[in-house]
Design a protein around this nucleic acid. Structure first.
Lengths: 196, 196
DNA sequence: CGACACGATGTCACGACATGACATCGGGGC
DNA sequence: GCCCCGATGTCATGTCGTGACATCGTGTCG
């Protein structure tokens, strides 16, 4: 028989999420998590670089997945649309929405977690910008499309998560948000007669 | 004569900035800062809630100032323009540009600092959204304008900081970035014939 | 079959960050 | 001239995160 139980990482993840739900993130110590998972705190830090990372463990795969969607977009003539579509077209529904809601609630309730979230989002936007650039979009346009597109999507994502159970799907919400955005940025003004 | 030297906060700030410049943020401990400022570490934490805050001490006043510019904008018919103008029209030049450059360099070089920066930026965008909403802009449009406008400005601000000494002023760079943004978001497509 | 390298975990020690509780004492107000 | 207040110090403590090294099942290779 093994010297220790297998599945330390899973036990740690589960223990952490349970404790966060029970007593909040701040009031949960790594020692508590480790105890509940029947390992030492040192082991916790072998799997997670810090306490926050438990909640972002899968973010890196997700990031790669989403980046691929930009890299493989059929056409980058409308970079903003590419970014928004890469994000909104992803199958978020396949993840349990209630889980996402709880996770988001934890994050916005805690500055430390929000910090981590914002950095990950910013890093992803940077990835997007790089990908767009490699596909021929100018540096400045690529950064604008990546950052603005991410914000537009995030507004939609937050509305979608907040919405009552069973309402419209994310793609639909995103379309609505994009429409609102067009109304908010009446850019035609600066090029009065220009069609195309 | 006073029991202790006056000006602890100033000495702490100066000591911290010097040490950060000399050895970087991570490799500077609060103990070192306090020693150099001739106070105890406990005193450091009475003035700064944590080690990072030294670099963000004035951010709150700035935030209020910028928010006021949104609140007092003459017209909110084009909320995106209001946000961008509130940010870009502020007199950043009155602050030493070289100081801003060094500060920015410290921040992007260190994840902890970047986290703090992003949270402050996000909070400011939230403020903007609230202000726009109180002035009659719809909730969703307000959030979009605030967040997207902030990103657009940040792209411009970063370009401006990075630019060679003596080049165009921030407002001009912002105009250029706005122009690029219009090119990146060819929104006319969805409302083919619609004039305002 | 037995030696041995590997990998997951434990143990220990430590430094840094952050905060609460209480002590100290100079200076300014009454 | 007394007394309170505010700025600072002192001490103790809890938590986070990391380096160094020990332990010992397991699977592999000869």
């Amino acid at each position: 028989m093994p010297r220790w139980e297998h599945g330390s990482e899973e036990r740690l993840t589960q223990a952490a999420l349970d404790l966060f739900a029970e007593q909040g993130f701040e009031d949960t110590s790594v020692l508590q998590i480790a105890d509940r998972a029947r390992v030492t705190p040192r082991t916790f830090f072998r799997y997670f670089s810090d306490k926050r990372e438990v909640l972002f463990a899968h973010a890196d795969e997700l990031r790669g997945e989403l980046l691929r969607r930009v890299v493989e977009a059929p056409d980058v003539g409308d970079p903003l649309a590419v970014v928004v579509e890469a994000l909104s077209g992803f199958d978020w529904g396949s993840r349990d929405r209630e889980v996402q809601r709880r996770r988001q609630a934890l994050i916005v309730a805690n500055t430390e977690l929000l910090e981590r979230e914002l950095v990950k989002n910013a890093a992803m936007a940077e990835d997007f910008a790089g990908a767009l650039q490699r596909r021929g979009v100018g540096a400045r346009s690529a950064r604008l499309a990546a950052r603005v597109g991410s914000q537009i999507f995030l507004v939609a994502y937050e509305e979608w998560l907040a919405a009552d159970h069973g309402s419209a799907d994310l793609a639909a919400v995103t379309d609505e948000v994009m429409a609102s955005f067009r109304a908010v940025a009446p850019q035609a003004r600066s090029v009065p007669g220009a069609g195309s």
